[in-house]
Simulated assay, not measured.
Amino acid sequence: MAAAASAPEAPLSMAVDRSMSDTRMAPERVHEIVLHEDPVDKSRETGQPSILTTGLTLIAVGVALFLVWQTVSSLLIVFAGVLFAAFLDAAARALAPVLPLSRAWRLTLVLLLLSAISGFGLAWGAGKLPEQTRLLLKVMDTQVDILQEHLLSYGVDLLGPEWGRDFAQWLFANQGRFLSHAHFLLGGASSLLTGMLVVLFLGILFGFDPTSHRESLVTLVRPSYRARARAVMDEMGSVMRLWFVGQLIRIILMTACVWLALYLIGLPGPFVLGLQAGLSNFIPYLGPIIAAIPIALVAMPLGASLLVWAVVVYSIIQSIEGYVIGPLIQRKAVETPPAWTLVAIVLLGALFGVMGIALAMPLVAIGRVAIIRFYVEDYLSEDLEPATNKRE
């Protein structure tokens, strides 16, 4: 009987023990389920940033953009220094097969050659440029007289009766006006000289030690991505070298051709007109049109035949340079569609003035490299080579 009575008690005690064990394990199971279904851990496992991280990133980007906007003029000067360093590096690389010297000695030789060429140009231009400038001002003054006479026949007084049509009288008649012009010119000249010196010294410092300056920026990237960032920055440097050397070649060719052509047809001040036509190549599409205006103004009062000759000769030279020589020189450096380049020139010119216009083309070139490499290829994981081959 005792054995029979104890038999039903055994299952009952086992059930009570199991229920107590389940009761003790309940908090632990709940804690385990909560940890397993924690959304924070899910975001960590999937690699998605949290809301706090996204907010801090947006704030940091906004602050960085604000600082860039406030210091954009200085940043453009720094970028001009980087461009000059790229030119020095290209010149040193070109001398490597000829002179078996170290890179520092080749850069020193390049700087000495540039200093000698600049000194010779200043010494030669000091005697030529003032004379040609005076001739151009006299011719333009004559053209203003002719224009004023035509407008007076329609009852329009261009310059007004109190100033007349003499530029010298307009400039020096009023001492207050003269002092204001002098102050403006001196301030502009000092700012330009300061900017040129900063660009010069930055270019020299960057040119003599480009690796350490590049690595100082690469260290800001996470270690697993530094090799990629280093390769993209090297590609940007190559683009800047090709663009600057190509622009320098185009300026020299355009200046020489226009100078010779205008000298042969007998136009006054051919070197000044040729120089401004060559420098206008820094502004694609708009620059050549602007450079044609002084040539037409100088040739206009000298007769219709000389005006036609000057416009036709300049148009032919500019067409050959713009459609044949320029694309051959810059085809490896800048592959941006012309419309986007023109949009960048207009926007940067409206925002940042002359510096924005002058540096729009190289900024577009390296910006294109950054967008393609970092955004399209790395973020979107899209390879553009098949599309390029199909287009070709």
Rank of each mutant, 00 (worst) to 15 (best):
58 L>W: 07
331 R>Y: 15
323 Y>V: 05
95 L>D: 05
336 T>W: 08
95 L>M: 10
322 G>V: 05
21 S>L: 15
321 E>Q: 12
389 N>C: 10
97 P>V: 07
244 F>A: 02
116 A>R: 09
334 V>R: 00
367 G>V: 05
253 L>N: 04
172 F>S: 03
238 S>N: 06
156 V>C: 04
185 L>M: 08
52 L>F: 07
365 A>G: 07
139 V>G: 00
140 M>N: 12
193 L>V: 15
331 R>F: 15
60 A>Y: 13
33 I>E: 14
363 L>M: 13
34 V>K: 12
33 I>G: 04
21 S>Y: 13
242 L>T: 06
119 G>W: 11
132 Q>V: 11
353 G>M: 04
313 V>E: 07
80 A>W: 02
326 G>I: 03
282 F>T: 06
268 P>Q: 02
62 G>A: 14
28 E>Q: 11
146 I>W: 14
338 P>N: 03
363 L>R: 00
8 P>Q: 02
127 G>S: 13
90 A>G: 01
152 L>N: 09
128 K>F: 14
332 K>W: 11
121 G>Y: 04
43 S>Y: 09
51 I>D: 11
75 L>R: 07
21 S>T: 11
143 Q>S: 01
283 I>N: 01
346 V>D: 05
306 L>E: 00
382 E>G: 09
158 L>C: 02
50 S>M: 10
120 F>I: 11
145 D>R: 01
234 D>F: 05
315 S>E: 03
102 S>K: 15
155 G>E: 06
317 I>W: 01
8 P>M: 02
281 N>L: 13
349 G>I: 05
356 G>D: 03
284 P>W: 04
289 I>M: 13
2 A>D: 13
95 L>R: 06
371 I>G: 02
300 M>D: 06
244 F>N: 03
254 M>F: 07
375 Y>C: 10
307 L>E: 06
32 E>I: 09
77 I>Q: 11
142 T>M: 09
175 Q>S: 12
206 F>E: 03
263 Y>S: 03
266 G>N: 02
253 L>S: 09
242 L>A: 10
250 R>A: 15
71 T>A: 01
298 V>F: 01
23 T>Y: 12
302 L>C: 10
204 I>K: 03
232 V>Y: 06
378 D>C: 04
293 I>E: 07
2 A>G: 11
99 L>H: 04
22 D>L: 15
60 A>L: 12
219 T>I: 15
323 Y>H: 09
99 L>W: 12
262 L>K: 01
112 L>R: 13
194 T>W: 00
28 E>R: 13
283 I>Q: 01
173 A>H: 12
101 L>Y: 08
384 L>M: 13
111 L>R: 07
108 T>E: 04
321 E>A: 10
271 F>H: 02
368 R>V: 11
123 A>G: 15
26 A>K: 12
7 A>R: 14
36 H>Y: 08
262 L>G: 01
161 P>T: 12
359 L>G: 00
302 L>M: 15
225 Y>A: 12
341 T>W: 07
231 A>S: 14
171 L>I: 09
366 I>M: 11
304 A>L: 14
271 F>N: 00
355 M>F: 07
273 L>Y: 08
181 H>W: 11
252 I>P: 08
323 Y>A: 08
157 D>A: 10
90 A>P: 01
207 G>S: 15
221 V>Q: 07
268 P>K: 03
235 E>T: 00
149 E>D: 08
292 A>T: 04
305 S>Q: 13
16 V>N: 10
388 T>Y: 15
221 V>M: 13
281 N>H: 12
374 F>Q: 05
222 R>E: 15
